[in-house]
Design a protein around this nucleic acid. Structure first.
Length: 238
DNA sequence: AACCAGGACGTGA
DNA sequence: TCACGTCATGGT
């Protein structure tokens, strides 16, 4: 079976098992009064008309940084804390010191590093507003994001895909584990190689990229969070 | 009570 | 390049 078919087939199977995921979850920048399925939890399955404004884009960037090697629930409480501290805007984050931000995001862990990364991001966004970034080509915007210390490949790709609607596939630890287990790649395949594999195999639609990554995380949480990874994965029979 | 989480960076080989 | 240590909280 060709890899291209394998990857599109895996998507179909995951979608059938788990349904639409509705990423990126938004909690503190949603328009008031909007109700959409389990919207209160932040997810908006089937609705790809997000983000709608720069505050929502900022929330996605913050979430992408805060969730580095961290459970999402800890990120949610950090976002709540930021909101309670009136730090949920570019101008507020600009005025705040990294120490003040660190206190607010404590629950997400690595708060010293992440607070400084957030400060660098805010400085960056002053010179490169979202509207300007969207007009850049994906590779150029990606390089600019990667130039920010504390923003690596996965965080940059999350921002590109979910905040800027760019078709940049996100590779995370679950994606790598799943693809190894399903013999799609071997142990020494790099982030860039796996990313290229997905991007060259799939239709370049941001809705597909957004759902696929979310589905891989959902599946990864089920079968790939504890060693030995993926031994009970029902998708294993290709 | 060790283990893990939607990583990234600095270092030495 | 790459393997390894470090950063840190909170749930299981």
């Amino acid at each position: 079976m060709h890899l291209q078919y394998k990857l599109t087939d895996l998507y179909e199977r995951l979608l059938k098992s788990y349904g639409y995921q509705g990423w990126w979850p938004l909690y503190y920048s949603i328009p008031p009064g909007v109700t959409f399925g389990n919207y209160k939890k932040g997810y908006h399955p089937g609705d790809y008309n997000f983000p709608q404004n720069s505050v929502q884009k900022l929330e996605i960037c913050l979430g992408a940084i805060l969730t580095q090697n961290t459970k999402w629930q800890n990120v949610v409480s950090a976002l709540h804390s930021l909101n309670a501290s009136n730090l949920f805007s570019l101008t507020a984050l600009q005025k705040a010191t990294s120490e003040q931000i660190a206190v607010a995001i404590k629950s997400a862990g690595y708060y010293n590093q992440k607070s400084q990364t957030i400060k660098r991001l805010v400085t960056f966004l002053r010179a490169h507003p979202f509207a300007k970034l969207k007009n850049e080509s994906t590779p150029v915007a990606r390089e600019k994001l990667l130039s920010i210390k504390g923003i690596g490949p996965e965080t940059a790709d999350c921002i590109l895909l979910y905040a800027l609607d760019k078709t940049s596939f996100v590779i995370d630890a679950y994606t790598t584990r799943i693809c190894r287990q399903l013999r799609i790649i071997d142990k020494k395949t790099s982030y860039a190689e796996l990313k290229h594999l997905f991007e060259s195999s799939l239709e370049k639609k941001k809705e597909l990229f957004q759902e696929y990554h979310a589905l891989l995380v959902c599946h990864g949480k089920m079968y790939y969070s504890r060693k030995p990874y993926g031994v009970n994965d029902p998708m294993i029979d290709f």
